[in-house]
Design a protein around this nucleic acid. Structure first.
Lengths: 208, 208
DNA sequence: GTCTATAAGAAGATAGAC
DNA sequence: GTCTATCTTCTTATAGAC
């Protein structure tokens, strides 16, 4: 027995195609071919091409919701991650940031989701909502909470926490966009990430 | 006599449609309808749909090339813009940054070009090249040159100029992406831009 | 340079056998 | 649940009159 059902495999292959060509650039025949079935068989699993697309968006929304809940359960506001950051060395912070960046860059699904949402954000309201939530609002909010706590404890230069969060996150965002468009520049981007974090901590982090 | 020829109006309306729906999401009939001619008339001006798209890409490349040349002619490296920055007050810098951001955000063509390149970057190598050049490499390079000169003259905290350039530019880039996807959040984004520049100058600019 | 008419093929989706 | 065969509509593009 296969682990992945045909229904799931359709979503996987469709995502793969949508992430490069966009919804309108992909035919149901291409999806079927990638799944190694004939076109009409698709319709036993999904009632239309739009239905496949919607299922992918739902999957993205589900993953996002689960991750957001797990962050709350782990108790970010209670200070778990803050404690982590307080006792971290500059080198560890740099390694942590690089690792996080590499995860977002290399994780197959994360990368495809991001590319699909990037393409579809202007014509699909749900895609737009998910794009902004996942790649802009959520990271900024997370970093803000962290930095606020650090500033309160004088582990960080006092400043507007949301602006500091943007100073920390936005270079990562830009470099992700760069690598999504030009994967061959990954090494250069990684070098940038390291120097960015290094310079950020020098500027913002007190009592090294 | 009309100022804009039919040939140019086709490009304008096609761009408008491509910038939201992408190349594959637009039919030649839609373009013709927007131009208020019938579909076959399009083919007297362009030999195919792809030809229209390529002409838009060429237009983008031309504008970019011209701007790049005018920057060189104005003599950035000779220090014109640097002089400007050296004698600028914090308030002026904030106003200048906000104005630049607003131009990129509101200028009709700039906005549509950016959205089209965002959509098409993953399936069209030329679109990818233009996207990275215009919205990542070029701004970073410009700011780097500026900051290097300022650091040399001790008008700026000494640090890696390219990293500082990224610290200055990447929040603008992220906020442009936000506004492209969620135009209703423009005011919030503008507020962020102001606070970002204010905090940036506080951190990086010496001898106010 | 614009139109009507139309060709030629692709694309989404269904019917019905197995 | 997969297939072959087929329908219908949409889409790009051309022919040829005006």
């Amino acid at each position: 027995m296969e682990k992945r059902t045909t229904k799931q495999r359709i979503l996987d292959e469709a995502l793969d195609l949508f992430a490069t060509h966009g919804y309108d650039g992909v035919t149901v025949a291409q999806i079927a071919h990638a799944v190694k079935i004939k076109t009409p068989s698709l319709y036993k699993h999904y009632k239309s091409k739009q239905d496949i697309f919607d299922a992918i968006l739902e999957e993205i929304a589900d993953r996002y919701k689960k991750r957001a809940e797990s962050i709350k359960m782990d108790g970010l506001d209670a200070g778990k991650d803050t404690e982590l950051f307080l006792n971290i060395s500059k080198e560890q912070l740099e390694a942590m940031g690089t690792q996080l960046f590499l995860f977002f860059l290399h994780d197959e699904f994360t990368r495809k989701y991001r590319r699909m949402l990037t393409i579809e954000q202007f014509r699909n309201p749900t895609a737009s909502r998910l794009y902004v939530a996942q790649y802009i609002d959520s990271p900024i909010h997370y970093q803000s909470t962290l930095f606020e706590a650090m500033m309160e404890r004088n582990n960080m230069r006092r400043a507007d926490a949301r602006t500091a969060a943007m100073h920390f996150y936005s270079p990562m965002f830009l470099l992700l966009c760069l690598c999504d468009s030009s994967p061959e520049r990954e090494e250069e981007a990684l070098d940038f990430v390291r120097r960015h974090i290094s310079q950020f901590t020098e500027i913002y982090i007190t009592g090294e």
